[in-house]
């Protein structure tokens, strides 16, 4: 119940943004005929979304978004709060299913397979498309059990030694192994915020997903922890496809290959990251990255 309230509350700020914008930026009014500019599509698409619309009850949160996420690409999604970037991200592994009033329309495909096919099973989908959340949410279990949770529920291993190996490699990949190797069996909630978030990343990659979705993974962390996670993202992109929602433009600039700019539920511009931050195609993008609103 509470989750529903939370989520709708997240959508509500749209109105606030709307009024704020109208004061500062008159051209923000006219979004009706907006066409996405830049290069939303790639040849090596891992996931491809076309004309996606998302509603919370009768309130529309996402308008006609079409976008590809390429194989082994890091795609950053930026935009003012309430622009729908998190909502869009949560559609990609159907986390929005947990919210009763949320409905998704359009075509969303993972390697050509429609992920909103009613016959499709969300459990293996989420094993393929993992997610890291805004606030570190380690389970109230030991560090080891946190990482081993995914492999255990999916039945990936039969032997203890195999599990140990997965836990170790996942923690290594998440850059946490050295810090926790001596206390694998102490509670995951006892770690610092940054460590907790890396633990959550380790927990996600222990299932060997193909795509990792990250919803503002550093927003609750200090700059040093943030730097570590960013490094990690760069390394992970060798093996995984990553979509990251971020509030920080610097972070998007540092870690991503392409950047998508969302505004009031619409996708305004998608371009090579460098281009977005140096010479954006759209006026709204420019206004945002130069800090005129956000």
């Amino acid at each position: 119940m509470e989750a529903i309230v939370d989520q709708t509350a997240k959508v509500d700020p749209m109105n606030k943004v709307n009024t704020e914008l109208s004061k500062e930026n008159p051209e923000a009014h006219d979004l009706s005929g907006l066409e996405t500019v830049g290069i939303p599509f790639t040849d090596t698409a891992k996931m491809s979304m076309r004309d996606v619309n998302v509603f919370y009850a009768d309130k529309q949160a996402i308008f006609d978004v079409s976008l590809d996420i390429g194989q082994n690409e890091v795609l950053a999604m930026i935009g003012p709060s309430g622009c729908g970037k998190s909502t869009f991200l949560r559609c990609l592994n159907r986390m929005n299913d947990t919210i009763d009033i949320c409905s998704v329309q359009g075509s969303l495909k993972l390697e050509g397979q429609d992920i909103y096919d009613p016959k499709l099973d969300v459990v293996p989908l989420r094993a393929r498309v993992g997610m890291v959340f805004q606030k570190p949410n380690p389970f109230p279990k030991s560090i080891y059990d946190n990482v081993a949770y995914g492999p255990r529920i999916h039945g990936l291993v039969n032997r203890r030694t195999d599990l140990d190996e997965i836990v170790e490699t996942s923690l290594q990949k998440a850059g946490l192994w050295k810090e926790v190797r001596d206390r694998l069996h102490s509670p995951g909630t006892g770690l610092s915020g940054g460590q907790q978030q890396r633990l959550c990343i380790a927990r996600t990659i222990a299932v060997s997903p193909e795509v990792i979705l990250m919803d503002e993974p550093c927003s609750a962390l200090d700059p040093i922890a943030t730097a570590k996670i960013e490094e990690l993202i760069a390394e992970l992109s060798e093996n995984f496809t990553i979509a990251i929602v971020t509030h920080s433009m610097q972070q998007a600039a540092r870690v991503s290959h392409r950047t998508a700019y969302f505004h009031l539920g619409k996708l305004v511009e998608v371009n090579e990251t460098e281009k977005v931050f140096t010479n954006p195609d759209h006026k709204l993008t420019e206004a945002y990255i130069t800090g005129r609103f956000g």
Binding site: R126, G130, M131, N137, F139, G150, H154, T204
Partner: peptide, 23 residues
């Protein structure tokens, strides 16, 4: 129990009952 814990488990592909029983 915070929703974020449920999300964390569901996001890894756990079924609802696995999430309930184990998290």
């Amino acid at each position: 129990v915070p929703q974020s814990l449920r999300d964390g488990s569901l996001g890894l592909g756990a079924t609802k009952s696995e999430t309930i029983k184990q998290v």
